[in-house]
């Protein structure tokens, strides 16, 4: 199940990294933390290497405000599965931002553009970004490789605050994936 890295045709604008797009709809009522179940539920939608390829996907996928609750959209660098157990993620963590429904689609777009455009300036630390559509709020998160690196984690927070232009009362929370594994909860 190797996913091919898309070529960048002449005239298109190459991104620093190639990315994969994943979609997940959590089974209603069935609460399971088993890795295999998670892998079964998450579907690879496509991959892109250029700005133009990104927009062609983005303009065709449903936006968060159009999705039913319990859907997740993941955009991860190619080669990194959007799972805690992946080698790129196992020592990592994520910033979690809870958003009102009215602003979540725009915030998600801003987060994606900042990630694809390399606005975080933390080398290869960023793994990917997720939006989780929930009944009363949406949650965006950005994953990085090294949860123990305070300066990287702080820098990601500062960039996130700037690009999302969040109201000052917005709660941001950092969670290491090994903690998520221990307490079996993501948020």
């Amino acid at each position: 199940d190797k996913i091919a890295v898309p070529d960048v045709p002449e005239g298109e604008h190459r991104l620093q990294y190639s990315y994969s797009l994943w979609f997940m709809q959590r089974g209603r009522g069935s609460v399971s933390s088993a890795t295999s179940d998670y892998e079964d539920q998450i579907k690879h939608v496509g991959a892109f290497s250029s700005v133009e390829q990104f927009w062609s996907y983005y303009c065709h996928i449903a936006h968060p405000s159009d999705l039913p609750p319990h859907c997740d959209i993941h955009v991860f660098k190619m080669g990194i599965k959007p799972m805690w157990e992946d080698t790129a993620n196992k020592d990592g963590g994520k910033w979690i931002v809870r958003l009102r429904k009215e602003i979540s689609s725009r915030s998600w777009e801003n987060l994606l553009l900042a990630m694809l455009g390399e606005q975080f300036i933390v080398g290869n630390e960023i793994c990917g970004a997720v939006i989780s559509v929930r009944p009363t709020e949406d949650i965006v998160s950005i994953w990085n490789r090294t949860a123990s690196n305070d300066s990287i984690v702080g820098k990601i927070r500062d960039t996130l605050q700037r690009i999302l232009q969040l109201p000052s009362q917005t709660i941001m929370e950092y969670k290491a994936h090994d903690q998520s594994l221990k307490d079996k909860s993501s948020f």
Partner: peptide, 21 residues
Amino acid sequence: GTRIIYDRKMLLQLRDSPYSR
């Protein structure tokens, strides 16, 4: 090495006029 950086405005311009490159 050199990193390929785009700001939000540049990315939005490429969405709005994909053939004006």
